[in-house]
Design a protein around this nucleic acid. Sequence first.
DNA 1: AAATGTTGTGCAATCGGGTTGCAAAGTCAA
DNA 2: TTGACTTTGCAACCCGATTGCACAACATTT
Lengths: 137, 137
Amino acid sequence: MNKEIDDKLKLKNIKPTAMRQLVLEVLLQHKTAISLPELEQKFEKADKSTLYRTLKTFQEKQLIHAVEDGTGSLRYAVCDDFCTCEPKDLHVHFLCIKCNKTYCLHDIPVPEIELPEGFTFENANFVIKGICKKCNF
Amino acid sequence: MNKEIDDKLKLKNIKPTAMRQLVLEVLLQHKTAISLPELEQKFEKADKSTLYRTLKTFQEKQLIHAVEDGTGSLRYAVCDDFCTCEPKDLHVHFLCIKCNKTYCLHDIPVPEIELPEGFTFENANFVIKGICKKCNF
DNA sequence: AAATGTTGTGCAATCGGGTTGCAAAGTCAA
DNA sequence: TTGACTTTGCAACCCGATTGCACAACATTT
Ligand SMILES: [Mn+2]
Ligand SMILES: [Mn+2]
Ligand SMILES: [Zn+2]
Ligand SMILES: [Zn+2]
């Protein structure tokens, strides 16, 4: 099939089933993060729970990461090639309140915060809301 | 009834009904942000939709603010007295992955981010996840 | 006080995203 | 070919959020 897709799957140790190839293709084409319900609509006839489990697998294998953008549904985006979903890979996300799209700001790392005494860091979710470039034009 | 509570309601132009007094009392007692389902459990017999609309009203009148902590339910916490829920009032939140409590880090403002060309800022939600002081002991 | 309008409350129903159990289908290696 | 293991499809279910509607409480006017 598509070389790029199979390579990405192999790189993350995910067996390249037909379903997974299709889902990854959609994820790669899509420029912004996508939710399970949105993903479902991209297919004529696809089962929600299969898609759900596909996303779960992708996430566990660190092929995609999830964004809690507060829209009520988690959104997913493909990770950079050597992302391991650790703190160093965390970046800021942007939700456009007009077009409701969620962008990965890959170049903008989540700033480090000095936590209060006794609190320890594990993870972070930083979402900025506003108007995106397209909607500002 | 309770002076502090009625004062806070009056300050934000909210009519002090019995229900609202009770809800605000719970919110003030609670040291961490609280969700609608959690709030519901604090009362023997209270209607979910009334509580829901009470929270909505409080939020519109800027008596409380909502935190999207990714737990699946929005959590609410009482605003500082002169908070107007504008960018200047935004602060970081902390979700403990052990006890599942969400803390307002009132002293830690959400850092300003240089957005890409064409993107404009409206709001932000910054949640750090980790282990809280109590759970670290 | 009585009539009227406005606001708040309680109940039941609905919506939607996420999640699970289970059986059938597919994969793969012995 | 057989049997173990993985993946998929379908049908539920869970749960937080939200809404419509009728009634109660409250305020305002006569
Ligand atoms: Mn991202
Ligand atoms: Mn807060
Ligand atoms: Zn936009
Ligand atoms: Zn804790």
